[in-house]
Design a protein around this nucleic acid. Sequence first.
DNA 1: AAAGGCGTCAACCGCCCTCCA
DNA 2: GTGGAGGGCGGTTGACGCCTT
Length: 312
Amino acid sequence: MGRQPCCDKVGLKKGPWTADEDKKLINFILTNGQCCWRTVPKLAGLLRCGKSCRLRWTNYLRPDLKRGLLSEYEEKMVIDLHAQLGNRWSKIASHLPGRTDNEIKNHWNTHIKKKLKKMGIDPVTHKPLSEQTQNPASQINQVQIIQQQPVTTSLKIGHQNGEQEKTDTSHESSSTLTESKEEDKVETPTLDDIMNSFCTDEVPLIEPDEILLPSGPTPSSSSSSSSSSSSNSSNFLGDLELPEFEWACNYSDDNKSSSNSMGLWDDDFMSVWDLLLNDNDEVDRKIADSGSALKQCPKMAMDQEPWAYGFF
DNA sequence: AAAGGCGTCAACCGCCCTCCA
DNA sequence: GTGGAGGGCGGTTGACGCCTT
C-alpha cells in the first residue's frame, strides 16, 4: 500500500552493463550509499530496474569483492559447506568473504560438480556415486535414521539436505523448512570442523592422492589458474588473500558479520575509485605499474574492471 | 581457416519472506 | 490485521570466448 512498484519494466535496458552504466551506479552509491534500490536507477540516471542495479552492485561492483577463481581452499570450504547447507548459496557465500552467492553458485555448477563427479562423488548428496547406484535405498534409510535422531552435528544436516534436494527439488517442503530452522540452532562449524570433516567421512572412496590438499602445489590443472595457490592451510585468511582487509569476523562467526566489517571505504580505496570515476587512463597506468598481485589476475577480468583487482 | 561444440559466467526471472503503510 | 513493495535467494538463460575437429 502506498508504495510504488519497483519498476514497470517498460523502456528499461537489459543485458550486459556498460562501463558508463557502471560508472553511474558507482558514482551514485558512493554519493548516496546503498538504500532504496527502487530509486537508484532514476536518481543515478540509469535505464535499469532497481533490482538489476542491486544485483550489479552486489555481484560485481562492490569494492569488497574478491574476484578471480576460487582458491582450492575456498573450493574445499564450498564443498563442505554445501554438504552442510545444500544449495543455500548465500549462506555459503557468507562464509567466504569477498565471494558472492552467484559466483559460488556458478563455480559449483561449472567446476566443483565436475570435479566431484570425476572423483566418484555425487555433488548433491556428497556420497560416493557407486554406493548410491548400488543401493539407492540405503540413502533413504540413512535420511530416515538421521531424521529420527536429534541433530548433533552440522554434517548430518548436510546429508539430510542433500537427500532433500535429491528427492524433492522444492526447497520449501516442510522438512526443508524444519531443517532450516534447526540449522539456525546448530552451531556454525569452526574452521577445524571444516578441515576435519572434509574428505573424510564425506568421501570415503577418494584416494589419498586425489584429495585436494590445501598446502603445497598440486598437480591438478583444473584449477591451475586459481588466483591463489594455497601454501599454508593453517593460514586461512592468508589463503584467501585478504591482507588488505581487517576481517572482524572469522570463519566461525555468524553469517551476517562476514561482509560488514571490512574497511571498504578507506583512503586507498577511495583514491582508486576516484581514479576510476575520473580518469580511466590513470587507472590503466596504475595497473601497469602495479606489482605481481595484479599480474595474477585473469586477463578478462582485468579488461573488464581493472580497478577492482589488486587494489581491493 | 572455418564451423560447430563446449565451458564459463554475468544477468535475468520468479518465488518467497520481511517490513511497512 | 491486511496487502503490497522491497529485497534476498536459487534456478535458469544466453552471450561470449575457447577448444576441437
